[in-house]
C-alpha cells in the first residue's frame, strides 16, 4: 500500500514537472526565440493566404513548376509516410517506369535517382541542385524564359545542407517555385 502511494506521489510530481513545466518552458523558448519555425515554418503571402510550410513538400504537376520527389502518401502532410517497399521490389520498378515516362528520361539522359525514389516521410521539401538543373529546360520552355535565367535562380537558391560534411547541394522546391512565380508575374 505504501509502495502504491509512493508511486502515485512520484507520478504526480513527474507529471507536473516533466510534462507541465518542461513543455511550457520549451514552448516559451520557441515562441520567443524562433516564433516562425515554432509554428511550423509557414509561408504566408502578402494577401494573408498560407501557401504551405517551407519544410514540407507539396505536389506540383504543371510543367512550369519544378517537381518534388515522388511521395508515397501524395504529399499528405496530415498522414505522412514512405512506400516501405523493399529496394528489390517490382512495385518500385513499376512506379519508377511511370515517373521516367512523365519526365521523358532516356538512357542517354537518365533521371537523377532521388526523382525516382520516394522519401521516408513523403514530404521531403528538397531536391538536389543537379535534379533541379535536370528539370530546368522543361520549366524554362513552359514559362518562355531563357534557360540561363532559370539556372541562375537555381544556383542562387541552392545550399549545402551540412556545410563541409556534405558535397551535394540541395534546393527547396517550394521556395524555388515561389521565386519563379514572383519573377514571372
Amino acid at each position: 500500500m505504501e509502495t502504491l502511494l509512493a508511486s502515485l506521489r512520484i507520478s504526480v510530481a513527474t507529471m507536473l514537472i516533466c510534462v507541465g513545466g518542461y513543455s511550457t518552458a520549451v514552448w516559451a523558448f520557441g515562441q520567443t526565440v524562433t516564433p516562425g519555425t515554432a509554428e511550423g515554418s509557414l509561408i504566408t503571402l502578402p494577401n494573408g493566404t498560407i501557401v504551405g510550410s517551407r519544410q514540407i513538400a507539396q505536389g506540383f504537376t504543371p510543367p512550369k513548376y519544378f517537381w518534388p520527389r515522388p511521395s508515397a502518401v501524395d504529399y499528405n502532410a496530415d498522414a505522412a509516410g514512405g512506400s516501405n517497399k523493399s529496394p528489390t521490389s517490382a512495385d518500385l520498378t513499376k512506379r519508377a517506369e511511370e515517373t521516367i515516362a512523365r519526365y521523358g528520361a532516356t538512357p542517354q539522359n537518365p533521371l537523377p535517382a532521388e526523382l525516382a525514389t520516394a522519401s521516408g516521410s513523403g514530404l521531403d521539401p528538397n531536391i538536389s541542385e543537379h535534379a533541379a538543373l535536370y528539370q530546368a529546360p522543361r520549366v524554362a520552355a513552359a514559362r518562355g524564359l531563357p534557360i540561363a535565367q532559370v539556372e541562375a535562380l537555381i544556383h542562387k537558391q541552392s545550399f549545402k545542407p551540412g556545410g563541409f560534411l556534405t558535397s551535394a547541394k540541395l534546393v527547396n522546391v517550394l521556395e524555388l517555385n515561389l521565386a519563379l512565380d514572383q519573377r514571372g508575374s
Binding site: S89, I100, E114, S121, N126
Partner: peptide
C-alpha cells in the same frame, strides 16, 4: 543503388535513396 531501377533510365551513381531524406546526406 536501388536494385529495382537496375535496367531503367535512372542514374545509378547515388546509393539507395528510397525511404531517405536528402537533407541528412
Amino acid at each position: 543503388p536501388t536494385e529495382a531501377f537496375a535496367n531503367l533510365a535512372v542514374e545509378q551513381t547515388a546509393g539507395n535513396l528510397e525511404g531517405k531524406e536528402l537533407r541528412f546526406g
